[in-house]
Design a protein around this nucleic acid. Sequence first.
DNA 1: ACCTGAACACCGTTCAAGT
DNA 2: ACCTGAACACCGTTCAAGT
Lengths: 232, 232
Amino acid sequence: MPAVSATEGRPPGSAGTQRRRAGRPSAAVLDKAGITAAALELINRKGYDGLTMAALAKELDVAPSALYNHVAAKRDVLLLVEDHLTSLVDVSGFGPAPWEDAVRGWAWSYRNVFAEHTPLIPVIAVLPVTDAPQTLAMYETVSKGFLDAGFPQERIVSSIVALESFIFGSAYDVTAPADIFESGSMAEATPHFTAAVRSAAGQVDGPPADAAFSLGLEALIAGLGALREQRA
Amino acid sequence: MPAVSATEGRPPGSAGTQRRRAGRPSAAVLDKAGITAAALELINRKGYDGLTMAALAKELDVAPSALYNHVAAKRDVLLLVEDHLTSLVDVSGFGPAPWEDAVRGWAWSYRNVFAEHTPLIPVIAVLPVTDAPQTLAMYETVSKGFLDAGFPQERIVSSIVALESFIFGSAYDVTAPADIFESGSMAEATPHFTAAVRSAAGQVDGPPADAAFSLGLEALIAGLGALREQRA
DNA sequence: ACCTGAACACCGTTCAAGT
DNA sequence: ACCTGAACACCGTTCAAGT
């Protein structure tokens, strides 16, 4: 049950003038789904710098300390958001589509979701899957897709981890400023690099981050795909 | 000139009892090299949580506000550290060794350096190279290596970015706890994934992060290497 | 130009008190 | 069990004053 229902339909953030009086309310005001929704709303509106425990509490019309009845720390809030976002990643190709197409669709979707949420990447990378049911569900679907495609079982986890590492690194890349590789006053000292940057800029097919992602992803799909055993 | 020389050989952190009196000292106490060295010392001893402007100032035996005469913000300190660490990455294979071996050595070295410094990864990924001379020098060496190996000039930057994305993502992976994939109470609901994790654990050849890194890196080297033109 | 010292506007988190 | 409100121990950063 989202928290909004417990605030009698008042839109979050539009708190009435009178504060709730102290003491346990007859019905709980907060729950994890409501906290997750409010955190996402705040992130979309103000970015990750705006996601403070105080701002989150205000969004939910409670005192900051009330949040600690539902999460042990701010990290838990990030974890809730991460797990929700993972449920948005497209795994629908696994099963119907050929393995290459399924992986390609999954990887692009995964990168695109987290490119907007790079502050979560350090959290995901170290996240025990036990704490994230949607994330675990994604791994199950992807693992089954790899197994059915003829992957040797003992290479599946390493293959997924390798793809994920590339995906997370590439998500950062999307957020890089366009002039990140301008060597400026050092251009003379770095002629080969400067020439390579100029030459790449000549190609005008979409964002540079997409070109690098496509290049690396296709290499990984081809290389990992070769691990598959022949199937009938 | 490192700051230690300006504190008359006193080891950093072992400040004398009397404070320096206010006003400009006759010789500058701080400089960027000294700030970088003190930051690295602090990171090695206390980790990135211990790297605060206050702790850094104490290490250098100055008031926190003194740092702001040399850096505009904490982010600049991280940038100084990042550029120093990049100078430790091994690019010696480019030139003497075959391209595949040069890339392999560079990539493992790069990953190993930043696996210990993952909090810098969000900084690097968005870092204009102009602000980081050592980083720019690395790109120059690597670019020349790719060009000499027969890479088409317009694909060099994308190829390097793809490799770096994989390297940064893999650096996080090194820091993940060993039980990150234990599905725990959800094991029954995720049979394929759980079996894949068990099966991978059966293979006992080094850290799991190394297996995934090797797998992905070899796929990238093979796939990107195919972009090269034939050479005499 | 380059320090000190005081101050500012935060931050996440804890905990007693209330119902 | 689950809120409020006050408090704590920080944090990065600013700025006047001093030499």
